[in-house]
Amino acid sequence: MNIHDISRAPTDRSPEIQFDPDACSLSISGASFPEDGAAFYGPVLSTLDEILKALDQRCVTVRIALNYFNSSSAKALMNLFLMLDDAAQAGNQVIVNWFHAADDDTMKEFGEEFAEDVRFVRFNVIPTAVTS
């Protein structure tokens, strides 16, 4: 399987996903309310799961900069963070940087809640300048 398959160009309703296998860095940004959440995230997460399981003592950096996501995307994000937490428990150093517009209470709250759900990942919730 080609690991580059994880990257996705952004659309009106689905986020840009960038994955750099050498640096072990993942970025998900934009808006996320795909027509079919399972169809969009399913292949990304299953490929990522294989990649994460093969890592040994690596440093993984994840950037999340979403301005909106719907409930089926929230389900996918939860799965992603649980997967990352397993990778961190297995001995990798995993950092998640969750960016939210400083005036966006919902995205801030989501970040804080996901941070509570991981035990081994270093999860940072970071406000950014307001753009809209």
């Binding site: 399972a38 719907n70 089926s72 929230a74 996918a76 939860m78 649980l82 809640e113 759900d117």
Partner: peptide
């Protein structure tokens, strides 16, 4: 919030029929 998280963790997949995540949202 606790119910939402429980549904996020345990619902079988993103678009599972019957998962009340959308209503909780």
């Amino acid at each position: 919030k606790a119910y939402y998280k429980e549904r996020l963790r345990n619902a079988p997949d993103a678009d599972s029929k019957g998962a009340s995540i959308g209503l909780i949202e």
